[in-house]
């Protein structure tokens, strides 16, 4: 079994896979891992080539759009140690096309599709759970700490929804941010974050929402277990309605 290594970046992963899919007769018998530069590491290192990486993704999107979507969601998860599974999944996707997502009895397909589904689920969840606060200058700011690196697709979602607003998304853990202003979407990193002042009526609107949240529940049907299973407590930190608990 041949072993290959790459530099740990997303581009590096994609270009390594492009190389292997091109050169290896049976990619399912190949292992791929991130180079850690340890003493006993063995394997052949494949250098990063951004054009190769991009070409692979576009080729996949043409031949198997659903599988390309799975690959995209998988990359959002920033999962380590699953490179070989991903390689096997891709090699199968180029053979079988979009049908491959249904080959759930295959271990590599199941692992990759499973991780991608989880990332997709959190993205969908955050579309609902993200909370904006209005700032003094009229812009809106939303902070979050998602498990997956979903700021790009999330910002795209809000660029279509809150079109006329000036807003920021801030991933506190990854220190990345997105900004939408007058039809342009930008991404960047934030070195030092100082909490900006809120607009004068922000607290009033938040109090309205908190009151609504309380009264909309039917007291005879209280069910905190179900509430927590639908809305895990890890998301409560930034939820306006959970601030006074």
């Amino acid at each position: 079994m041949n072993r290959y290594l790459y530099d740990g970046t997303a581009d590096g992963l994609l270009s390594a896979m492009a190389w292997i899919l091109e050169e290896e007769p049976d990619p399912e018998q190949v292992a791929l891992a991130e180079r850690k530069d340890t003493l006993f590491e063995d394997g052949f290192f494949i250098g990063t080539d951004a054009t190769q990486a991009e070409a692979l993704f576009f080729r996949l999107r043409k031949q198997a759009p659903d599988a390309a979507h799975t690959l995209y969601s998988f990359m959002l998860a920033e999962k380590e140690g699953m490179e070989s599974s991903l390689l096997h999944f891709l090699s199968l996707a180029f053979i079988h096309g979009d049908k491959i997502n249904g080959h759930l009895t295959h271990p590599a397909v199941r692992d990759i599709v499973g991780v991608a589904k989880k990332a997709g689920r959190e993205l969908h969840r955050m579309k609902g759970l993200l909370r904006f606060e209005k700032l003094q200058e009229g812009a809106y700011l939303a902070k979050m700490e998602p498990d997956h690196n979903i700021i790009h697709p999330l910002a795209y979602h809000f660029s279509r929804r809150l079109r006329a607003q000036h807003w920021f998304l801030y991933d506190v853990r990854r220190r990345t941010a997105a900004r939408w202003n007058q039809g342009t979407l930008q991404f960047g990193t934030i070195e030092q974050f100082t909490a900006p002042a809120l607009s004068d009526d922000e607290k009033r609107v938040q109090a309205l929402w908190q009151a609504f949240f309380k009264t909309i529940a039917i007291p005879d049907r209280k069910n905190p277990r179900l509430q927590k299973s639908n809305m895990p407590m890890k998301y409560w930190k930034y939820l306006t309605e959970k601030q006074d608990d």
Binding site: G128, L162, A217, R221, N223, R225, Q227
Partner: peptide, 25 residues
Amino acid sequence: GSACGIGNTSSSGICHSWSDDGRCI
């Protein structure tokens, strides 16, 4: 929605919170 306005809808629907009785808001 319209280019200048606010809001759109998605076919799957989105839950924004879950109240104390566990129902989606």
